[in-house]
């Protein structure tokens, strides 16, 4: 798909419409709701990265929480050790670079495996990152984590401003723009020759190898890109939460990333984003609604896998297709 037809496609109109609808939303929602939405969007960026591996490369990572944590900790560390550079224009590239480096090492160990081996190895490596964050107490703040101050943005300092005002004001617009860029870039990647190569490896590894594709190399590239998106999501998330702890790197959170991706439906490009936003609301309202939220979450997850394997977006698409079919049948 070249650029011109991409712009003319109906999808581009939908994207534009969503973007335009999202922009003024901060004025209608309460600051609290804006913060929730923002948390969902940052998780969505991460899940988008995760899905590059799952949907387009056929690799299930159970360790993406650690990459998310790397992005978030980069922000915290920058404040702790380089407070002079604590502006968002530096923090974002910095977290991209750091997550790329970590994802590079992480991926190098893991991409030699596939299937369940890959899942277990990613989990093991993510636990290494978790223990490092926990153990190197003096450097990382240990289990207490690091407090995240408000960064300067385009030269404006926001010290003294309440966090929710920053989040429901300038940061919201910034986040929406980054989000748009991420979606467009990821769209580009999956439709590029690189994306098609990944999919051909996913579909048939042997054949891909036969036609001269260096399979492991490409998997490693995919892991890098995926790690960058996930880390970027973590960095953006850290400002919203205001505090990062090693729990982000624990395998439970990695499992939640898988959960939200499948909740939204991983076979559809936008599925993970929908899933991440839904998941954020689901988790919050479940935890404040019942003491047994864990049980409820587990049951929802089991039912989801059993009854709605294509996720919410897949389910809706199915329903749409069925309705259409029955309509055409009526006509004929």
């Amino acid at each position: 798909m070249d650029v011109k037809s991409a712009i003319r496609s109906p999808k581009a109109f939908v994207y534009l419409a969503v973007f335009v609808l999202l922009l003024p939303l901060a004025n209608f929602l309460s600051p609290y709701q804006v913060m929730l939405l923002e948390a969902g969007i940052t998780l969505g960026i991460s899940a988008l990265g995760f899905n590059l591996l799952l949907r387009y490369t056929g690799l299930l990572s159970f360790g993406h929480g650690a990459l998310f944590a790397v992005g978030a900790y980069t922000v915290g560390m920058m404040y702790k050790y380089f407070p002079a550079l604590y502006s968002i224009e530096i923090l974002i590239p910095a977290s991209i670079i750091v997550s790329m480096i970590v994802a590079g090492i992480f991926g190098y160990i893991c991409v030699r495996h596939t299937f369940i081996f890959f899942a277990i190895i990613t989990m093991a490596v993510s636990m290494v990152i978790f223990t490092l964050l926990l153990k190197f107490y003096h450097f990382t703040g240990g289990s207490d984590g690091i407090h995240i101050e408000l960064p300067t943005m385009l030269g404006t300092s926001y010290t003294g401003i309440k966090r929710f005002e920053f989040l429901s004001g300038p940061y919201y617009y910034f986040l929406i723009c980054i989000f748009a860029v991420c979606v467009i870039v990821m769209q580009g990647i999956v439709n590029s020759p690189f994306g098609k190569t990944l999919q051909s490896i996913r579909d048939n590894e042997v054949r891909a190898e036969m036609v001269g594709i260096r399979v492991k190399r490409y998997r490693w590239y995919a892991f890098l890109v995926s790690g960058i998106f996930t880390g970027l999501g973590g960095a953006l998330y850290s400002f919203i939460n205001g505090h990062v702890t090693p729990e982000l790197a624990e395998w439970i959170f990695s499992g939640e990333i898988v959960f939200m991706t499948l909740l939204g439906g991983f076979m559809i490009f936008e599925g993970p984003i929908i899933g991440a936003i839904l998941f954020t609301y689901l988790q919050l309202y479940l935890t404040s609604w019942t003491e047994y939220w864990q049980f409820a979450m587990g049951v929802i997850l089991i039912l989801l896998v059993l009854l709605l394997p294509q996720g919410i977006s897949g389910g809706v698409a199915d329903l749409y297709r069925k309705l259409k079919k029955s309509k055409t049948r009526e006509i004929s």
Partner: peptide, 26 residues
């Protein structure tokens, strides 16, 4: 789950973990 793909197999045991932990609490 036996003839489903890996992500579903893992996710369903993840869900079972959450549910059983919750059940113990109940």
């Amino acid at each position: 789950m036996y003839n489903r793909t890996l992500e579903y197999q893992l996710l369903i045991t993840f869900g079972a973990m959450l549910a059983v932990e919750g059940l113990i609490k109940m």
